[in-house]
Design a protein around this nucleic acid. Structure first.
Lengths: 143, 143
DNA sequence: TTGGTTGCAAAGCTTTTGCATATAT
DNA sequence: ATATATGCAAAAGCTTTGCAACCAA
């Protein structure tokens, strides 16, 4: 079984399902939802159950190894805790989720803390719009 | 029945349920979810159904009269389309949702459009943290 | 050995949908 | 008159939970 350094201790156990799920999230090039995770996991471990996926997702959230995003959909997406905070671009045409960073966000946090006496612990920023590929696509064949 | 100027035309009908729902959202001091809307609506119209609430919410969204927010919960919140774009502060202690505006957001949008060739149509910014009341509360009796 | 974990099935919650009835226009 | 809207109940997502069996430590 692949040893995932982060997962252990505190009365927690290292199981093959847990390691697999963590591995799949971290290899998921950004974001993945529970259902896709489940489908990918079954290819490696056909008997794994969806509840195991959800239970581990919950655990990873509590351990702060993984972040949960609501985006605008009916289901949630997960990503391994990024070393550096980043934000998301959501293409409203193809549904793709891209990442970006921008230093103005830190400035904004500071301003808000001062202006509203609100202690900011994290920022969740989603810019909704059209990605570059879809823009080209629309030029090529306008609808 | 209260006439809601925005709701009419395009084969749309003015019903007492529709007017009531719109009225409740706009009076909801910021944000309200479907269930609370339903409970408030029943006080005025005891026979109104939850599906009517959801169907009108959907309609208002399509008509761009109301905005839907996912925040971080399992259900969605709604607010009447604000004249000016604003963003949200989410208190992770008491759950309150506050509003704020910040000019850096427009700057950030421009930078992102240039740097990522992404055409931004709207920004959804949530700052998670502790509101001023809860900060005082924690000072008073630290846990 | 034993308490955390899993798989399965069932339940929960929010949101959506089918259909007959009611109603705005 | 007639197409839109409603109420009710049933269904449909996504997520959580109870429980017996399993297995990592």
């Amino acid at each position: 079984m692949v040893r995932v350094h982060d997962i252990a201790g505190e009365g927690r156990r290292q199981t093959s399902q847990r390691a697999l799920i963590y591995d799949l999230i971290s290899k998921a090039n950004g974001h993945i939802d529970a259902d896709e995770l489940y489908r990918k996991a079954r290819k490696k471990q056909p008997r794994i159950s969806l509840s195991t996926v959800y239970r581990n997702l919950q655990l990873f959230k509590e351990m702060r190894l993984v972040e949960e995003h609501g985006f605008s959909e009916a289901h949630r997406h997960y990503e391994v805790k990024p070393r550096a905070e980043h934000q998301h671009l959501l293409c409203q045409r193809c549904g793709k989720v891209l990442e970006f960073k921008n230093p103005l966000i830190d400035q904004m946090k500071k301003q808000v803390e001062e202006q509203h006496s609100f202690k900011v612990s994290s920022a969740d920023v989603n810019l909704i719009g059209i990605c570059s590929l879809c823009q080209k696509d629309e030029e090529a064949r306008p609808e």
